[in-house]
Design a protein around this nucleic acid. Sequence first.
DNA 1: CTGAAAGCGCTAACAG
DNA 2: CTGTTAGCGCTTTCAG
Lengths: 332, 332
Amino acid sequence: MKREKPREGARPTMADVARELGVAKITVSRALSDQSTVKESTRTLIRETAERMGYRLNVSARNLRQQRTRTIAVVIEMTPSHERLMSEPYPLLLLGGILQELTAAGQNMVLTTIDLFLQAPPSADGVILLGQGVHDDAAAVIEATGLPYVVWGAEHGPPGRVVVGSDNREGGRLAAGHLLGRGCRRLLFLGDAEHGEAEDRLNGFEAALADSGAAIVANIPCAFTVAAGREAVVPLLGGQGPDFDGIFASSDAIAMGAIEALQAHGRKVPGDVSVVGFDDSPGAALFSPRLTSIRQDWGVGGELLAQKVLDLVAGKAVESRAMPVGLIVRDS
Amino acid sequence: MKREKPREGARPTMADVARELGVAKITVSRALSDQSTVKESTRTLIRETAERMGYRLNVSARNLRQQRTRTIAVVIEMTPSHERLMSEPYPLLLLGGILQELTAAGQNMVLTTIDLFLQAPPSADGVILLGQGVHDDAAAVIEATGLPYVVWGAEHGPPGRVVVGSDNREGGRLAAGHLLGRGCRRLLFLGDAEHGEAEDRLNGFEAALADSGAAIVANIPCAFTVAAGREAVVPLLGGQGPDFDGIFASSDAIAMGAIEALQAHGRKVPGDVSVVGFDDSPGAALFSPRLTSIRQDWGVGGELLAQKVLDLVAGKAVESRAMPVGLIVRDS
DNA sequence: CTGAAAGCGCTAACAG
DNA sequence: CTGTTAGCGCTTTCAG
């Protein structure tokens, strides 16, 4: 057997462990990956020795040799900030689901933003994109890498693309049904319909309103924040603008902002105006009045995203998926 | 110059680009890392050719060769869930700060949980641990890897450890000062003092109360959630238990739960009882009454964590740091 | 059941 | 300014 020179100071390698025991380094490799072709007793001996010597696998070397990284890149389309956290709490919940599923599959997760991804592409076997953005440009950046990828959002891109998201149209329908049931007839939609998910929510909302006797009296473009929700309704409260008795906001944050503005102008919620939000974010039940909302299941969404990107990496066929949503009736 | 055989199908390597142009692959390497030792014209030619051929750097190979990973592992001590998101919104904000700073330094970030970290240690040059937990066991796991690491939390571990966190004692003092100023004399502390950060908050609170005429009439252990906050005060509202006119809750979530319980029992906030929370979480300003709280600056904290772990990796000396906090007075 | 050789793709070190 | 050589640590392939 070929001997190699010992080394000092640095972290021990397989060669070091092999030399210590007088075996070949390939035997160490096999033992540590628990291959049954190595005698049981040898295997445990090697494992113990490696442990004792403080051996740790060099992941870069393995990845180079195996031509894969066991890593999935998760790209966040937006930057987390104090303002947006409340408006879009989903990142953390989605991340939780993704992490859980990747973990189970023995994969690592590198987290980046879209800018960083361009600047310094991490090494990964596949990509999960969270939020496709207003224009589809984020997805285009990922597409260009040639890596397999899946997107959280709405199905508005090219046909082949794999998208996981909530059934936003159904969410819109549920909101409409609820407001109609409460007797609302003159409705407001708050949200940015340039945004794929909001567009679907609006479409479902409109569809369910057809022939109902109710109508959308104003459709106000507005970002996914509390402040934007406030600003969206203020212009309608001075006497000018159409009258309304119901609001469908495309996020809970928008709904909260709108309600604050309404109350500040003496309008009662839900007495004068009924409001339905979207997301069922953690703060919805704590707001006053407690917010009626459309719930999305982000945890499951994250798991699904991870599963699908792994299938894609493995070369399997994969389909898009719209996840069920639910109406959570509270006091607004 | 040595020629190498061409290859089909696979992603092109530096050797492929080199052959295409009739140069050595080391020249390609140098050109792509923009070294001035390569003639300007050659550099641009190589860059363009690489681009055209769809060349992408093999990060594993570079990492193996350079014996580093350009990656920092961020270990979350807890699992994100719908319940805990609201109670501890800091992960995302901390992550934002960390990400920003790592990005600027050209580093990647792998996200794991403490369990996953044990199961399958990712390759990284350093570790950031978010949340040291009740017992210091999470830190012990990281310590065992021998990797340089920093912790978000309170300074309660061994002396050498680098900890970044808010000045929790000062936060406690601010809360005490505010409640005293409002005339409160019989105070409640809600939080888990087994938890290092909560312990410091309590210590600062007690210290500022000394010789003030006011006293802590009950110190109720309680997890960092809305539900726990509710359950913590309910037993005191039936007539048994001490009377109280002020509460310092060690998180906003706890404060919200406590206030809900108080209101449900007919006690007015802030009329009968004044409440101070901790975190100034995004929902604090939306709660009713708007929550008075101690603000922590997570974004800056994240940046600091990243900076310090990078310094550690670079072999520099690094010190722990307690970040300033601020009292945000609202209506509770 | 164990071993030797080869090479993944890249860059440091040393020529020229 | 450019090239040659060597080798990072591991696992695949082929031999025993």
